[in-house]
């Protein structure tokens, strides 16, 4: 399996993280998304006419939607599937709000920055409210006691919110949820999302 990858892309990280958590080997091919716009190169457009990343290639199969890729990777692991449809589209909405703010702040993308940050805060409040309900029911993840592709789809953009000037300080349930994901065996980091450093015992 080959992932056409950009190191700073939250959507590419979704795929790297999912494969790592499943212990599936993944070959990454770095694409010079910034500054060279290689995802729009003739070679890449032949593979994916939309000119977007990530692109997953497995033999003759080429997948270009993050949600599709997550479903494909977990096709034989039902534990990772749940009531995730609604959260996969929520992840796309997060990408449009917080993800856009991040691209604006880091790579100077055009955006109505106040509007996307405001929408991002709305999304985070919805996520927080849902996770609070889950916790009242004794669950830590979005759809149950164990993580599913819903969590992996929503986690990267959420965790990278501060990159786009949106603070996560005021969402304790989101923070706990992120901690639970970072604690999963096989977890890998990306720039802006740090691994969990071991906590020292209190003195």
């Amino acid at each position: 399996m080959i992932l056409y990858d950009y190191i700073l892309s939250a959507s590419c990280y979704q795929v790297r993280l999912m494969a790592a958590l499943l212990g599936q080997p993944l070959t990454t091919r770095a694409v010079n998304f910034h500054p060279a716009k290689e995802h729009k190169s003739p070679e890449m457009l032949k593979l994916n006419p939309k000119g977007t990343l990530p692109v997953l290639q497995d033999g003759d199969l080429v997948l270009t939607e993050s949600a599709e890729i997550l479903r494909y990777l977990t096709r034989d692991t039902p534990d990772w599937r749940g009531q995730d449809e609604v959260w996969l589209s929520f992840a796309a909405a997060l990408n449009g709000s917080i993800g856009t703010a991040r691209l604006h702040d880091i790579l100077s993308y055009d955006a109505d920055i106040d509007a996307v940050r405001r929408a991002g805060v709305q999304h985070l409040r919805q996520l927080e409210a849902h996770l609070v309900e889950q916790r009242f029911d004794g669950m830590i993840f979005l759809t149950g006691h164990t993580p599913t592709i819903a969590d992996i789809a929503c986690f990267p953009t959420t965790a990278l919110a501060p990159d786009g000037g949106v603070s996560l300080d005021v969402y304790p349930s989101i923070r706990l949820w992120m901690r639970a994901i970072r604690s999963l065996p096989g977890f890998i980091e990306m720039p802006g999302i740090h691994r969990l450093h071991e906590l020292e015992a209190a003195p």
Partner: peptide, 21 residues
């Protein structure tokens, strides 16, 4: 590849960014 070298350096710099901010 050029993309790999670019990606390595962007990774390093982005690890610093949140600390700088």
């Amino acid at each position: 590849t050029m993309a790999e070298m670019v990606s390595f350096q962007q990774m390093i710099f982005m690890q610093d960014r949140s600390i700088l901010e």
